[in-house]
């Protein structure tokens, strides 16, 4: 197997735990040298609300969401948004290099749940030829229950205040029945302010969902 970032062959280290545990081991798609560039978030020290690194107690931003009346998403993310991750996102979403969608799949193992990905705007899908969020998580069983109306300014081009003011643009697709479901995990590529994910959670609740909603992303 070749590394999807550098093309070098990947040597899989068969540790005893990997051999003896019965959990399904997914083959890595990145070589050791490439993977090492990225910084993992230490989950034990991450914010319990948003998964931010080095914030073992509820961070200020999460306290604001809580005060504003939002039930916390208890978000988890795998990696920090550092230089290496920015250039990964640039190649994957910016250049549109679809091959990279598998890069982290062996490391993306959110707790068991009903997975609902955050949808991409139709215009972006047309330009890119793929949905970057669906790509990152397409090793999981996904439920595409949400849809998104086109917005004039993409989230990525806004500053923090602009992002927080973004109006709701998600809705639950017609004919989706949420009655039998007790837990949903929203999936996204990147958690920045949380605005997108809290909007998505709102949309699910407005559609009559009464269970627990958590969220998960590759990057925080």
């Amino acid at each position: 197997m070749a590394c999807v970032l550098c093309g070098q062959p990947i040597q899989i280290e068969w540790t005893l735990t990997k051999i003896f545990t019965l959990t399904k081991v997914r083959a890595p798609h990145l070589c050791r040298a490439c993977l090492r560039q990225f910084t993992r978030i230490d989950q034990a020290n991450a914010c319990p609300g948003c998964g931010r690194a080095d914030s073992p107690t509820l961070c200020y931003d999460c306290q604001r969401w809580q005060k504003a009346g939002y039930p916390l998403l208890h978000h988890r993310a795998v990696f920090q948004y550092d230089g290496a991750m920015k250039s990964f996102i640039q190649q994957y979403k910016g250049l549109g290099d679809w091959r990279l969608h598998v890069a982290f799949q062996d490391l993306i193992q959110p707790p068991k749940s009903t997975y609902v990905p955050i949808p991409t705007e139709a215009g972006h899908y047309q330009a890119r030829g793929f949905d970057p969020v669906l790509g990152l998580f397409d090793h999981l069983s996904l439920h595409q229950w949400l849809e998104k109306a086109d917005t004039p300014v993409p989230q990525a081009q806004k500053n923090r205040a602009g992002r927080l003011m973004t109006p709701q643009s998600f809705s639950v697709r017609p004919l989706v029945s949420l009655a039998q479901i007790s837990q949903i995990t929203l999936l996204d590529d990147l958690y920045t302010t949380g605005r997108t994910l809290y909007h998505a959670a709102d949309a699910l609740r407005e559609a009559g969902f009464h269970g627990t909603i958590t969220s998960f992303s590759l990057i925080r």
């Binding site: 190649q91 549109g96 290099d97 679809w98 091959r99 030829g129 793929f130």
Partner: peptide
């Protein structure tokens, strides 16, 4: 690509 058209991954770093 999932949408159906093809791209060249080899030189993608210079624009797709």
């Amino acid at each position: 690509l999932p949408i159906g058209w093809r791209y060249c991954p080899v030189c993608v770093n210079l624009g797709r």
